[in-house]
Computed example of a mutant assay.
Amino acid sequence: LVKGMPGKAGIPLGVMKVLDPRQLKPNSMETERILTVLDETIVKLEITRLIPRITASLERFARMLGPEITSSLLEHQKLSMEVRDLLASPGDEESVRAVEQCLKCSLRNILRLFLANPLLYHGLKYEVRVKESPADVFIKAFMEFRDFMLERLLTSPDEEKEKIQFMEDISLRVERNTETISALQEELAATIQNRDEEVNRKDKMIKNLKTSMEDLAKNCKADIQQIIKEGEKQQKEDEKASQDRCARLEQDVRRLRAQYSALVVEHRASELVLRKVK
């Protein structure tokens, strides 16, 4: 750590200054001048982005802008249309260059007027609604460039070394953590695979048991139906045999009754003969 002073969470103080913008403070006139130029350039880019929208609704913003800026914007709009017309039809190149030069001077004058009135610029920034365009991408990139330049300007060689060392340490930690994560992911994948295989094995076992139970139920049902069928068949056979026995018994009864009747008749005839003999 720098000068033995502890950093936040083990981060060197020099690195903390780079990572925390609140600790970045200009330490020279040259740095302040560079930052001023960059900041003014960003403001100019944002104002330039708003100008077409403002000129399209100049009556709406005229009171806020004031007569001087309104007049300058009207002149700028006129020059823009003149340049557009000259470019649309072939003509004198010197005239085109002259009008373009006037247009550039007009733009510089408008930017100067807005920079002289920062409150007006900030008010218009939130008042004017502009659709996102490639200019926004450029402005964002330029703002990132400004932050990068600030970091470079305010980072001493020792702090730069600390930053590089810190980033290397972070990269090493990330690499080690990545290896650990990869190993854990492989272990997790193997565990999941084993679990899936075990689940599949148990699913197959359950499926086989279910099939066996269904087959057993079918077999039991078939056996029961066979038993019922055989029982019904046996019952019918028993009923038929019983009916046959009953028929035979009835036949025997009729035969015996006939014999009995014949014997009675014969006995009566014999008795009658005997009575006549006496």
Rank of each mutant, 00 (worst) to 15 (best):
S89L: 12
S28G: 10
K163L: 08
E100W: 01
S261R: 12
A222Y: 09
L124W: 05
T178D: 09
L1I: 01
Q243E: 11
S182A: 10
E162F: 06
L19S: 10
R248E: 15
L103W: 08
F114Q: 06
Q225W: 00
E46Q: 07
N208F: 02
L73C: 08
G4M: 12
E59F: 03
T36A: 14
E59P: 04
N208G: 03
R22C: 04
R245E: 11
A116L: 12
N117F: 01
Y260D: 15
T70H: 00
K3S: 11
Q101I: 00
G123V: 03
F166P: 00
K44S: 15
E232G: 00
K240G: 02
A190C: 04
V99G: 00
L87I: 12
Q243D: 07
K125R: 15
I228L: 14
M29E: 12
T178M: 05
Q23W: 06
Q101V: 02
A262T: 10
A62I: 04
N200L: 13
Q77M: 10
A116M: 09
V37Y: 10
Y260C: 14
H267E: 13
T70N: 03
E82N: 02
K78E: 14
E162L: 02
I192K: 09
D92K: 05
E250G: 08
E214K: 12
H267D: 12
K8N: 07
L58P: 05
I139N: 01
N177H: 10
L150G: 04
S95L: 14
R129K: 14
L74T: 12
Q259I: 11
L216I: 13
F166G: 00
K78L: 07
D223G: 03
R176I: 09
L111V: 10
T155P: 00
E151S: 07
K229N: 02
I47R: 03
D20E: 10
Q101S: 11
V96I: 13
E187P: 02
M167N: 13
L13G: 03
D252A: 12
K161H: 06
F142H: 06
L111R: 07
F166S: 00
L58D: 04
L24R: 15
F166Q: 01
L19P: 09
S106N: 04
A135Q: 09
I42P: 04
I34K: 10
R268N: 15
E179I: 01
I206W: 10
R84M: 11
I192H: 03
R146C: 05
E198L: 06
I42A: 15
P90F: 05
P90G: 01
L50K: 07
V277M: 06
I42Q: 09
Q226N: 08
E144G: 03
F138W: 04
L13P: 04
L154V: 11
I192V: 07
S270F: 06
D85I: 06
T70V: 05
L209G: 00
A269S: 14
A217C: 01
L209C: 02
Q77G: 15
N109R: 13
K131R: 09
K207Q: 13
M149I: 15
G66D: 07
T211K: 08
T55Q: 10
E151N: 09
S242E: 04
I34Y: 01
C246T: 13
P6H: 11
M16I: 09
K229P: 04
S182W: 01
S261A: 11
V137M: 08
L79V: 05
S57K: 15
K125L: 14
T48I: 09
D238G: 03
I139Q: 03
